[in-house]
């Protein structure tokens, strides 16, 4: 009996430790976020730092994002046509592809791909900088690592995400056009005019808002995981995994919350 009781207590203690640890991490993440905002003035004074990081996070993610967008657009057109033709509205295929991309898939898939490509790279880079004492060296040189390393990467991620989401939607529409017009034979005029008539400006602004929020979330998660990673090979590897998992869940959760507000 006493044995069972002690096992239950041990189990509860473990759960308590886990919960406490997660709350602590949430607080540490929030603290890093506010410190990043506080120490951002330096990188705005030297925009070259942000531009350099935008190259690594944004430009280097272009290929994976554009290729994915093209395939997503093509699949949307194929699937959409099958359903729409049953109702005799196959000419609305352009609207379906565009709205699906602009409202949901553009910002969400871009954020997921961004987390997998640029987010993991950021986590691994900062984790390794910590493990090899590069961040300590910077501190000892009287250079603040948050303003020199974290803040430029943060703003680069935040600014890249809406641009990437826009490109994703554009290329996705082109993919859809290729399948719908060139392969299936939907009228090209109907494809574009229906899209033009039904996609509103608010859809585009909502896409930009969503991708901006996802940009803040994904970049901050990646930076925090790297900054907080234990300075070992195993620590960096776990941090990179956590970046992908937490970013993906956060993006999907935030997407639901934002969509709920935008639909009101």
């Amino acid at each position: 009996m006493a044995n069972i009781l002690s096992q239950i207590i041990r189990g509860l203690r473990k759960v308590g430790h886990r919960v406490g640890d997660q709350i602590w991490r949430l607080g540490a993440g929030a603290r890093l976020f506010f410190l990043t905002l506080t120490y951002s003035t330096e990188c705005f004074r030297r925009p070259r730092l942000i531009v350099r990081e935008m190259y690594f996070t944004g430009v280097m993610s272009l290929i994976i994002i554009l290729v994915s967008a093209f395939f997503v657009g093509m699949v949307l057109a194929l699937q959409g046509y099958n359903t729409l033709q049953k109702y005799g509205s196959s000419e609305s295929i352009g609207v379906l592809v565009a709205l699906a991309l602009v409202r949901e898939l553009g910002p969400v898939i871009t954020a997921l791909l961004f987390a997998g490509r640029a987010g993991t790279a950021m986590t691994a880079e900062i984790g390794l900088m910590k493990a090899t004492e590069q961040l300590s060296a910077m501190e000892m040189m009287a250079v603040n690592p948050i303003s020199r390393v974290i803040a430029p990467r943060f703003w680069a991620g935040v600014l890249s995400m809406p641009l990437l989401a826009c490109l994703f939607s554009m290329v996705g529409v082109l993919g859809g056009h290729l399948v719908a017009v060139a392969q299936i034979g939907v009228d090209v005029g109907a494809f574009w005019s229906q899209m033009q008539a039904n996609v509103e400006f608010v859809d585009v602004t909502n896409m930009l808002i969503k991708s901006l929020v996802f940009g803040v979330a994904c970049t901050m998660i990646a930076l925090f995981e790297g900054y907080d990673a234990p300075p070992t090979a195993e620590g960096v590897s776990h941090a990179t995994t956590r970046t992908v998992v937490i970013s993906a869940l956060s993006v999907l959760g935030l997407d639901f919350i934002l969509t709920s507000f935008m639909m009101v």
Binding site: L128, M129, T132, E133, Q134, S136, A137, M140
Partner: peptide, 12 residues
């Protein structure tokens, strides 16, 4: 101060 770290800690 200047500090030399054990493995150099050069920015890679």
């Amino acid at each position: 101060m200047g500090m030399l770290f054990q493995h150099g800690a050069l920015f890679t």
